[in-house]
């Protein structure tokens, strides 16, 4: 069982919901990311999603695009993010999921990536521009290593598609709350609850919801329907706030996700 699966099992056993905050590695510096991981864990994060900057983040809105630009101008690469995780593993065992775009992995080499990421202590990856149909080789390398490849289901996904994505996804299934990009205004479709229930039934795997969740109230609404809540852009906007202010916000989110 992977570290992510164990975490979900533990959270669901105590009838809780997983809080999955996202930050962009290297925004505004890798040193700050190291501090942020500690702060997120201290404030009750169950799993940390770590963005790896790419020049053309198609699924991301202006907030995360800006974060990626700042990180790239700091010279942050996939290799450097893996090094950071390696050194974080000396002080924390919290599950860490990477999120980035396929070209970075393709260039790094799929097999080498899965090996290096696992060795560094990363637990899985979300690749929004890689559908399971195109993920054959990455899936087989990941399976061998026990590295979780997490796929996304959208509100527009058909039942057939849902089955395919849910079947391929490991660790958890990422349900995209809205049609759109990260950081958009959340408008919860009334059918979201039944979609999530359907995915849970089909797959028997936990479903976490992300995109557009910003306020504790929104997080609480989503938490009632899903197994986990992912908050990205709203945290990225606050990474340069004072630690105290940031912690207040994170604790409010944590309290809302139950």
């Amino acid at each position: 069982m992977s570290r992510i699966e164990k975490k979900f099992k533990e959270v669901l056993k105590r009838k809780g919901k997983a809080f999955i905050p996202y930050v962009m590695a290297g925004d505004p510096s890798l040193e700050r990311t190291r501090q942020l991981v500690a702060i997120l864990e201290e404030c009750g994060a169950d799993i940390i999603e770590l963005g790896v900057p790419f020049s053309d983040p198609l699924a991301d809105g202006p907030t995360i695009q800006g974060a990626a630009q700042r990180a790239l101008s700091e010279g942050v690469t996939l290799g450097k993010v893996l090094d950071l995780i390696g050194s974080l593993r000396q002080s924390t065992q919290i599950p860490i999921v990477l999120m980035t775009y396929y070209n970075l992995i393709f260039r790094y080499g799929e097999e080498k990536f899965v090996r290096d990421a696992s060795l560094a202590g990363a637990d899985g990856i979300i690749v929004p521009d890689l559908p399971p149909d195109e993920a054959g080789s990455l899936l087989s390398f990941s399976k061998k290593t026990g590295f979780d490849l997490i796929f996304l289901v959208a509100p527009t996904s058909t039942d057939e598609r849902m089955k395919k994505v849910a079947g391929a996804s490991k660790g958890f299934i990422y349900y995209v709350s809205i049609t759109g990009i990260t950081g958009s205004k959340l408008s919860v479709d009334p059918s979201i609850g039944s979609h999530i229930t359907k995915i849970q039934k089909i797959s028997g795997k936990p479903v976490a919801v992300g995109f557009g969740i910003s306020t504790p109230q929104e997080a609480s609404e989503i938490a009632r329907l899903a197994d986990g809540v992912i908050v990205g852009s709203a945290i990225v906007k606050r990474v340069s706030d004072s630690d105290e202010k940031l912690k207040d916000y994170l604790i409010a989110l944590r309290k809302a996700i139950r």
Partner: peptide
């Protein structure tokens, strides 16, 4: 060779795969 905008083809990219 790389992947951009949902397509695999020839790209102008750096060693890390940024465009």
């Amino acid at each position: 060779i790389g992947i951009l905008q949902g397509t695999k083809s020839f790209l102008l990219q750096d060693d890390d795969g940024n465009i």
